[in-house]
Design a protein around this nucleic acid. Structure first.
Lengths: 166, 166
DNA sequence: CAGTATCCTCGAGGATACTG
DNA sequence: CAGTATCCTCGAGGATACTG
């Protein structure tokens, strides 16, 4: 009866990620966070999102441990939102999204943002590599093993993760 | 006045990707497509999504060139939905999402899906590498150059891409 | 500045019945 | 089987005014 896709009953890591960040505004908030945005008003102005919605999203991101608040003024009390390690770990998701939009919507010559790989000096375009051996990997190099049957739902996993965090 | 985030006026490749696939149901549809789902009823049953919504999403994905229809029966006329090259190119997005959910929601020991890298035989966990030089790359190895000011909006880029496709 | 509190709209999505 | 056509609900999000 939910009004939209409900990820919590899925048994899937993709759905788990979507449950935390797969919201129309959240990924734009995170994109801006990676670009250095840390304060409420900055997001509000850049995104034009309603204040209550922005507040709710930030609260959710903090609740999920993706961002954390840091005081930058005592009087008046003010704080900023910083990406945690967990939040910074989303960078490959954002980068692969940027790469796809770049390549398949804009076309590489029209890319609105460019990254340079400092190591080699080239324009950076990500490909996936295997953490274990470092080799570049395509879909064909992977074999998929499902364990869905005996695994937790997204809702259960989130609950367990929150318990562990406390 | 839109009811939700409107990506079309952004000048950003991430937003461009979200405009095409960043919908609560669409990424789950694609996830299942990568798992081999090709027919309407299969998605409908697995996702429990309303039929009109599923039809609309599939139509949108075909319209954006992410999937294409293929006849598999003449009488009665029946077709399947196959990922195009453009659609298959989304695999790094799904894989990095799966990795994050795996690691930061489920925890690696509870992962509902495993991938094995055939090359080295190890459990596959993706990291990003530079297409040009093959080296593994972290956020710190990247330098960002914005060209937002003189670049197209997402809406304009999508229109241009559609024109080119015809 | 960084929100909270209210009120309101409206359109996405669900449910169901129908069709070639 | 693969949708289309209708109708309906309801809650997400926008707008605005207010607060410490």
């Amino acid at each position: 009866m939910g009004r939209t896709a409900d990820y919590t009953n899925e048994r899937c890591s993709v759905a788990a990620t979507l449950e935390v960040v797969g919201d129309p505004w959240t990924l734009l908030i995170l994109r801006d966070a990676f670009a250095g945005v840390k304060r409420f008003e900055q997001w509000q102005e850049r995104l034009g999102v309603a204040r209550n919605v922005l507040a709710a999203r930030l609260k959710s991101l903090v609740g999920h441990g993706v961002m954390e608040t840091r005081r930058y003024s005592e009087r008046p009390p003010r704080h900023e939102y910083w990406l945690t390690e967990k939040g910074l770990a989303l960078s490959p998701v954002l980068l692969t999204m940027a790469e796809w939009g770049d390549r398949h919507v804009y076309g590489r010559d029209n890319s609105p943002v460019l990254f340079t790989h400092k190591g080699c000096g080239c324009a950076f375009h990500p490909v996936l590599a295997c953490e274990a051996c470092g080799e570049v990997v395509g879909r064909r190099d992977l074999e998929r093993t499902s364990r869905q049957a005996d695994s937790l739902t997204v809702g259960e996993a989130l609950e367990a993760a929150n318990m562990a965090a406390e």
